[in-house]
Amino acid sequence: MRRLLGAGGAVLLGAAVIALVGVGFSAQAYSSPRGVQKATSLGTDMTCGKALPHVTLSFATYADASGTNDVGQQVHPGGNPSWPSYGPTNIFQAPAHACVTMHITQYDSGGSLNNPVFAKVQGTIGDTESVVSSGNSVSGCDGTSPLTYDGTPISAIQPCDAGHTFSLRGLPGIAPGFFVNVPLPLAGNAAGDNVGDLNSDAHQTVTFSFIAGPKGTYAWNCEYPCGLSVAGFGAVMGAYGYMSGYLHVV
């Protein structure tokens, strides 16, 4: 071993260290540092059409990843201020085959989807979602002013009224046909202040339920082009953890 301690060895170790530091940095910076949100149990009920254990998850989308919401949670620690982000985490956990109800609060503005298919609600119970608006003063693209929803189940939004989407895909070999797509309509008010205060900031709260698949790590992402560059899928959309994450089904 003594022989290894030569200049050559030193250079090589240096190279390995450089590579590992780079990889280590990127592994740290591009994974989610924010922990896992476990679903809250609501007992067993008929929400999903049959008697199933019912759990719920609540999270939100924010316009500023570096911000802090009204309950003091950081949206995305170390996040880029000019990027939107899901928060306070992007990794969720729910039991297998349970009925999962999600409440997503959309604080961000929006526009048109690249593909109108994602304006349709898919894979949820009844293929619907329900949206409740609060403080929104922005008009819809068809002239509805302001764009508000009253909580009636809807099966689609206007493709040009999208803020983000929550699109959860299946797992090959485990849940190949599984697919949930939920469009989140845009929100905004004159103040343009979207840091995430439930009391004062404009938001749309989207609620939907679906039956979780078998055990596995399911990936979700946003299909609204909220990034820069080609097709709006550069920058934040290519950076893991802002508009993308996992649902661990256990």
Partner: peptide
């Protein structure tokens, strides 16, 4: 260079040891 490239190859193979590995984020 081979040492760096080889180290990276080992990380690729480690990620692929299991089907749904979260050893590395997809970006990394």
């Amino acid at each position: 260079l081979f040492f760096i490239g080889g180290t990276l190859a080992m990380m690729i193979r480690t990620q692929l040891l299991t089907p749904n590995s979260s050893f590395l984020s997809p970006q990394t």
